[in-house]
Design a protein around this nucleic acid. Structure first.
Lengths: 336, 336
DNA sequence: CTGTTAGCGCTTTCAG
DNA sequence: CTGAAAGCGCTAACAG
């Protein structure tokens, strides 16, 4: 029924006080007589008062909004990350403004500008470029990087121990006797993918197995020829195992194997990175490096919330540990 | 380097104009000489001006923020819905504030209050209760309901033809000779689930097959005993087929069948509702009613955007059609 | 075409 | 304990 919005002045008038007193009563800051407080509370309730966040933000020059920019909300990994962030923020009575930036530098920068315009209390980002963090930081907005690190300004971060995850996965295959292990890795300059490549190499080095660069296949996101290239690699290089360094590539690899009629694990072994539901459901199950995705989101949000409380807190990089989940897709090599 | 924020007044001073002229120049509304505009643009660029969204919202009493409240961001269905909404909003230069409310009435109401406080230009919601929409609507905020309808105030909506989806799925099983089809359905009073139940019943009625109420199992979200109850139903009622009316229930059913060692489709047939990736990957594939989830999100956002342009637009309910995707999990009944 | 003025709703000194 | 007053940054009349 109330068409226009009820303001503090309205409830002040209703309760016979000034707006300042009303502000103090409802925000709980400063002295207000119990009597006045009760009257104001009642009036606010009765009139259906909803504080105007913009007015408050304008006055206080900071909001309860946290900007979140992820690469691809359609991907389970980022969706779970966002879910973890959202849950944590909501518990602390903050709101999440969520944007999916397609790892596009321009879109990412546009997001940063939007978050700045909103006077976001902080920003969480899966970075594709360093300019966004730089712009935000320069304007006094705290940034937390998740999944990978890119910023050239100091900021908190939550990442996975990608090297270790990839090393364990590769080592698992090497221990099973595989010597020609194809690596499917995203074609980026991100620390996440670099770490996974490094882990693959390290595992080889540790056992003194030479790395054949022809077995390493960098594939861009959403590359339309991804599966064709994987099929070509399989046929030209005859790997006995595949390590797919993210969930999309694992999916592609699995589809290619199915299309070519190659059996898991008799004809070829497969390890994925990022344990998504289908990997536990297909037969045989896919051996995978599991990431605590939701928890990464939670940690990132916590880091940001802690910093809003104590801005002098030293910057932290939290490195979470992956877990190798062994299933039926990996087995010892057949004798050649 | 710029510690505090650059304001319109700053760039006006820099360019030797008043703040109003600066406002006109940068917002593009009203007359400004080409010369002044150029100087102002340059100054804004040079000083790194970012407009203050709160000030603008306060003044104009409306923002470029759309509130979105979904039931469970961790569920693919809602994540995809959110992704569709986000993409559409971003294209129109709106921001999405996303909250996952666990279908909890109190959380949902709290979200509504937050969106109101932010002067959201509109709200998209997968409703669990009618009070949120009512509160928003009463305060002049447009609401679009997605996936199900609940509001007792007029609002736009985007839903699936659940009756038809369930009818086709059930009909498919009946046509294969099944006469004892278990229905696993979410235990809600939502239109979505009611529609699916109705479709199940309608398909039976059309063929004159009696419905045995003992085969209908309502299961609450996140019920810890969901799988135990499904297993019990299978053993006590001996259905020859299962229709699981959402993706979570399909997952549960599949796990139970696997645990009990029942083969698809020889021992029992299975149809899911909402075609998620694993259903196409397991062997045999799961026959499923596919929803255009992402598209539903897009439509909801479009409906809202159109209404912000033309508030007198008549309310619309868009009903999208599902598609039955037949895979190997369904087959004719074995002769008893 | 441009500047002046006023005010959006709230919080925060500062006097009382 | 309370009210008056000022101002956050922006925009929209309204005169010039």
């Amino acid at each position: 029924m109330t068409s226009s919005h009820v303001t503090l002045a309205d409830i002040a008038r209703e309760a016979g006080t000034s707006a300042s007193t009303a502000s103090r009563a409802l925000s709980g800051r400063g002295y207000v007589s119990a009597d006045a407080r009760a009257r104001l509370r009642e009036a606010a309730e009765r009139l259906g008062y909803v504080p105007n966040a913009s007015a408050r933000t304008l006055k206080q020059n900071t909001s309860r909004v946290i900007g979140v920019a992820v690469s691809d909300l359609g991907n389970q990994f980022y969706a779970n990350l966002a879910a973890g962030i959202e849950q944590t923020l909501r518990e602390a009575d903050f709101q999440m403004v969520l944007v999916s930036d397609n790892s596009d530098e321009l879109q990412e920068l546009a997001c940063a500008r939007t978050f700045l315009a909103m006077r976001a209390a902080g920003v969480i980002i899966t970075p594709a470029d360093r300019t966004a963090a730089s712009l935000l930081s320069r304007n006094g907005v705290e940034v937390v990087e998740v999944d990978r690190r890119l910023a050239d300004v100091p900021c908190d971060a939550v990442v996975l121990d990608n090297d270790r995850g990839a090393r364990e996965a590769t080592r698992h295959l090497l221990d099973l006797g595989h010597r020609r292990i194809a690596l499917l890795v995203a074609d980026t300059d991100w620390t996440s993918d670099a770490g996974r490549l490094q882990g693959y190499v390290n595992a080889h080095d540790e056992l003194g197995v030479p790395v054949d660069p022809r077995l390493i296949l960098p594939i861009a996101f959403h590359a339309p020829d991804a599966e064709a290239r994987i099929a070509a690699l399989l046929q030209e290089e005859n790997p006995t195992a595949i390590f797919a360094a993210n969930n999309t590539l694992a999916d592609h690899a699995w589809q290619v194997l199915r299309a070519l009629g190659l059996r898991l694990p008799q004809d070829v072994s497969l390890v994925g990175f990022d344990d998504v539901p289908w990997m536990a459901m297909v037969e045989p199950g896919i051996t995978a490096v599991a990431q605590p995705t939701f928890e990464m989101g939670r940690r990132a949000a916590q880091l940001l919330l802690h910093r809003t409380i104590d801005p002098t807190r030293p910057r932290t990089v939290e490195t979470l540990e992956p877990t190798l989940v062994v299933r039926g897709s990996t087995a010892a090599t057949a004798q050649p």
